[in-house]
Simulated assay, not measured.
Amino acid sequence: MHGFPEFWWAWREQIPALAAAGYRVAAVDLRGFGASDKPPSGYDAPTACDDLAAVIRSLGASRAAVVGHGLGAWFTWSMPALRSEVTGAIATFSMPHPLVFQRAAWRHPLQWRANTYIRAMQTPFAPERQLSPRRHAVARRLRDWSGPDRSWITDEVLTRYEQSMQVPFVATAATEYYRWLYRTRVTLPGWRYLASVRAPIEVPTLLVHGADDPAVLPALAAESHGHVRGPVQVVTVPGAGHFVPEEAPAATTELLLGWLSAYHPA
């Protein structure tokens, strides 16, 4: 599962390598992003997990290793608690455990400052307008969240992500996810969700974070270790920012292949 402001194409470097190693790979567009359906509701973690479980079963599999980046990693963390029957292992990129992120979002000054964009998304209408091409919000987000080497942000990357955000209702869907994420601490469904993800994670877990991630503090990855009871591996990628799979594609592929070969042999 991809993050914001991306779609399935974010995993373009890993898909052929994992398939060549013998794995069946499915990179999805989150509900509302890219070519997926864009219903008026359902932009929350429980629904995202239900969507992914349905995709896994529709492909004829009973269990899968779930991999997510950014916003998609938030839902990946949620899968063992909400859809444990289809979750064999999880790998998360650039996102700590939801409880760790929620705590840091309110109590850690640096993460509070980094979350300015999330608070800005709570207003009506304005966030969607900010994602229009003339505002260059997508390009700014890619650059601001990247590590020091921004050579990966080519004209093709900018064009694809800006065009995908211009598909009707994509900007609204993306904003709705962040509105839900921010309000989990103050709504009854949010409290129920946070209570459900308190259960220790028993499946094999891989945590990957860019050492120079300005959007999500790298230190939060280590704090997430305490929410995992099963086998866990924490990796920091030097020089990478928030978009690890695209900033360090070779390292990402190597990490995934090594991790999968140990827990899910092809």
Rank of each mutant, 00 (worst) to 15 (best):
A211I: 06
A54E: 05
L207H: 13
A20L: 07
G241Q: 11
L220W: 02
H209Q: 15
G22C: 05
H136P: 00
L52M: 13
V186G: 03
Q130E: 11
A195E: 15
L52F: 04
L30H: 07
A126N: 05
Q166L: 02
T154A: 01
Y161H: 09
M79A: 02
R119I: 10
L256Q: 02
W74S: 09
R141H: 14
H227A: 00
L207P: 01
Q166D: 00
R113M: 14
W106V: 14
A21D: 01
Q233C: 07
G239T: 05
Y178A: 04
S146A: 15
W180I: 05
A126D: 03
P80D: 01
F243Y: 15
A104T: 10
R192Q: 14
R107E: 15
E202V: 13
T184A: 09
G241N: 08
L99H: 12
M121Q: 13
S58N: 12
T47D: 05
T172Y: 12
R103P: 09
G42E: 04
P5R: 01
H242M: 00
S146E: 08
A89C: 06
F4P: 08
A266S: 15
H97V: 05
R63A: 02
I56R: 01
A240E: 02
G68F: 00
G34R: 03
T116L: 11
R150G: 08
Q102S: 13
P249L: 00
S36P: 01
L142A: 09
D50I: 11
T187L: 06
A21F: 04
R63I: 01
W145P: 09
V167M: 04
G34E: 00
W106K: 13
A137I: 06
F33L: 04
G3Q: 03
G239I: 05
A250W: 01
W191Y: 12
Y193P: 00
W11N: 02
V235Q: 10
F243R: 03
P214F: 03
A65Y: 02
V235R: 14
A27M: 07
A20T: 07
L207S: 07
P204A: 08
E128R: 06
P40C: 05
P109W: 07
W74T: 10
M79T: 01
P189V: 00
G210A: 04
E247F: 07
V138H: 06
